[in-house]
Design a protein around this nucleic acid. Structure first.
Lengths: 337, 337
DNA sequence: CAAAGTACCGAAAGCGCTTTCGGGAAGAGG
DNA sequence: CCTCTTCCCGAAAGCGCTTTCGGTACTTTG
C-alpha cells in the first residue's frame, strides 16, 4: 500500500507536495498533481485514517449508542429501521458508523469514555430509557449528539409525534362507533410511552369519552408477552372495552393472542390498533391496523441534525418531530353492539 | 482530557514512563505507577485510539461488510440476529465494529479499500451473493476475514448445515405420511439456496420419493412476494403437492398467503415447513414449523474464527458448520388423503 | 571490596499524515 | 533593468502514542 513517503520517493517530490496534491491544495501545479495521482494509483496508495485523524482532529466516524430495554439489540424491529436509514444518510456524507463496546481491553469504560477514546465526530443515541446513566452522561458531554425517540431540552432530538398518533388512533376508533376504548400503555418512564398515554387521555377528553376504570393498563416495555398480560386484565373487566389502542405493535400482537385465547375474535368482538408499523404485522391474522412511525424519515432527520453539528463543530439543540400516519388494515371494525 | 504529555508534566515523570505505567510495563515501580494512575484518573485521561493504532498497527476495530439481495440492511430478520451475536462476542474481547461507507469524502472506493484505509484488524462479511465483486475482493485480500452464510475454500467460513436442514424437513414431512413433497427454493447462486436444494434432492432420493415435474420451483431471493408467486405455480399444478418445504421463512409466509387466497388451509390441505426460524413466524397463523438456524451460535463461531486470526496476525482458513434443528409448530399435519 | 546483577527511568526515533511559513523562480509592471 | 506579484514547492513542527536502547543507582555475590 505504501505511505506518502513512498509516493514522495517515487515521484521525486516532497511529502508536503504529495500531501497537498492528494488534498487538492491550490498551490501545486496541475502537472505535478497528475504525476502524483498517477503514482498513487499505481501503487494502490490509500491514506491512513488514523494518521489523518490524528493530525486533523476529525475522524469521520459517528459513535452509535444503541440500547433498549429488551436487550435484543439490532434485532429490535423498530429501531433497526431507524439505524438503517441513519446509516444510509450518513454514509452518503462519508461518515462511518462505529458500534463501540463498553470494554477497552479488560478495563471497562462508559460509552462516553469510549467515544472520546475513539475520537468520534459525533454520537447518535437510539435509546428509550431516559434514566440510563450512560445516556445522561452522553447528553451532558460536549460532543455533537442527536438523540432518537426521546425528548430533551439540551440536545438535538428527533422523535415521532406520539400524542398526535394517539389522537389519530382514538379518533379512528371513535369514528367506527367505539365508545369503550381502552389503552394498553408502554412504560411511563419512556417518553414514547408517556406521550401516547397523554395523547390517549387528551383525545378521549376531546371526544367527551370517559376513561373507564381499569381501561388504562400499563404493560411495561413493549414486548409481546407484556401486551398479552395487559390484554388479559382488560378481558377480566366487567365492562369490557370494545376497542383497544395499544402503544406498540409487539404488544398488540400479544393482545390479539390473548383475545383469541378467550375465544373472541378480532376485529368482530374487539378492535385492536397498534403503534409503529413494524414489518411483521402485515403477516399476522388479522393484519394489524396501526399508527406508522416513519423510520426512514426519523433516521434521515437524525443524520441531518448530527451532520449539521459536526460540520459546524459545535453542539446545537434542535427538536424535530416527525409526523405519523394511520395505516388501515384489518384489525379494526365498526362496533357491533 | 489531556495527553500523556500533560500527565508527564503533572507527575514529573517522562512520557516514556507515563506510557509504560499506563501499559503495565514491568520496569516501572509500583509507587510511580500509582502516582501516574492517580493523576490519570484525576484529569480524566483517556488514550487516543488513533495515536495508539498509528504506533501499534492494531486498531481494535472490525470492519463489517453487510449486504444482501433485498437491500433491507439491518432490517434483515435473519442476518441481524447474526450481527447482534457477533457484536456481543467481539465486544467482550474489546473490539469495536465499524460499518464502513463505500464513499470516502466524495471519492468512492471499494469496501476493501475503505477497510484498509481504516486499518481494521479484521473483516466479517455477512453476505449471500458469492458473485459480488466487493466480496470477492475482500476474500482475496490478506486481511483476516470470516465469511458468514457462504462457503469458500480460501478463507474462514461459517454457515448452517443446510443439507442436513433440508433432510430434516423432508424426513419430517415424510414421517407425517406425505409423499408429494415440493420445494420452493432460494436462488441457486446463493450457497444456502443451492445447498438446501441439494439436501432436498438427496433426502427425497434416500426415501425413494420421486421429484415430480414442477415440484422444484426457484423463488429467487427469499422474499415474501417471491414465495407467494412460487406457491402459486405449485397450486396451478395438476397434481398438487400435499406438503412443501420452503427454503426460507419469509418465502414460507408468502406461500401460506397464496394457499389461503385459494381458499385452502394450512396445514389441513397443505403442510408448509420453512427455514431460518425468524422472530415473526411465531405470530402468524398458523405458527410456522421450521428449521432453526442458530444465529447466536453462528455469530459466536464467526467471532471466534476471526479473533483467532487477528491475534495470530495471520489469515487462516477454517470451516465451521453449525447444526440446525427442527422446530415443530402448527403448519404441518399428517397427510389426510 | 570489586564485579556483576537488578530495578527504574528517560532520550529519541518512529507511526503517517497535515499545515504553516518561508523561499526561489518566473512573470508582470514601471 | 529593477521591483513587486504570483506560482510552486519543501522544511519542519506537530498530532499522541509506543518501544528500543542506554544509563544511572542500588543490591548481591564471591
Amino acid at each position: 500500500m505504501g505511505t506518502i513517503y513512498d509516493l514522495a520517493k517515487k515521484t521525486g517530490f516532497s511529502i508536503t507536495t504529495v500531501s497537498k496534491a492528494l488534498n487538492n491544495y491550490k498551490d501545486v501545479s496541475e502537472k505535478t498533481r497528475a504525476k502524483i495521482l498517477k503514482a498513487a494509483a499505481e501503487m494502490d496508495y490509500l491514506p491512513n485514517a488514523h494518521a489523518q485523524s490524528l493530525s486533523t482532529k476529525k475522524s469521520w466516524a459517528i459513535g452509535v449508542m444503541f440500547s433498549e430495554a429488551n436487550e435484543v439489540g439490532m434485532k429490535h424491529p423498530f429501531f433497526n429501521g431507524i439505524i438503517e436509514s441513519f446509516r444510509h444518510a450518513t454514509e452518503e456524507q462519508g461518515y462511518d458508523l462505529i458500534f463501540a463496546s463498553r470494554n477497552l481491553r479488560n478495563r471497562d469504560m462508559s460509552y462516553l469514555e469510549h467515544f472520546k477514546h475513539r475520537a468520534v465526530d459525533g454520537i447518535v443515541v437510539i435509546c428509550s430509557d431516559r434514566m440510563d446513566e450512560q445516556v445522561q452522561e452522553l447528553m451532558q458531554s460536549d460532543i455533537p449528539i442527536v438523540v432518537v425517540d426521546m425528548d430533551s431540552a439540551n440536545c438535538s432530538v428527533v422523535y415521532s409525534d406520539n400524542t398526535e398518533g394517539a389522537r389519530l388512533a382514538v379518533n379512528y376508533l371513535h369514528d367506527l362507533g367505539h365508545r369503550h376504548i381502552a389503552h394498553i400503555a408502554g412504560d411511563q418512564t419512556i417518553d414514547a410511552g408517556a406521550a401516547r398515554v397523554k395523547g390517549y387521555e387528551l383525545a378521549m377528553g376531546a371526544l367527551g369519552l370517559p376513561i373507564e376504570p381499569g381501561y388504562l393498563v400499563n404493560a411495561g416495555f413493549f414486548s409481546v408477552e407484556e401486551g398479552k398480560q395487559a390484554m388479559e386484565k382488560l378481558l377480566d373487566l366487567e365492562s369490557r372495552p370494545t376497542a383497544v389502542f395499544v402503544a406498540g405493535d409487539q404488544m398488540a400482537i400479544g393482545a390479539i393472542e390473548a383475545i383469541h385465547e378467550r375465544g373472541l375474535r378480532v376485529p368482530e368482538d374487539i378492535s385492536v390498533i397498534g403503534y409503529d408499523d413494524i414489518e411483521m404485522i402485515k403477516y399476522i391474522t388479522p393484519k394489524l391496523t396501526t399508527i406508522r412511525q416513519d423510520t426512514d424519515e426519523i433516521g434521515e432527520a437524525a443524520a441531518e441534525l448530527l451532520i449539521e453539528q459536526m460540520t459546524a463543530k459545535e453542539r446545537r439543540t434542535e427538536r424535530r418531530v416527525i409526523p405519523v400516519k394511520l395505516i388501515e388494515r384489518a384489525s379494526c371494525a365498526p362496533v357491533n353492539n
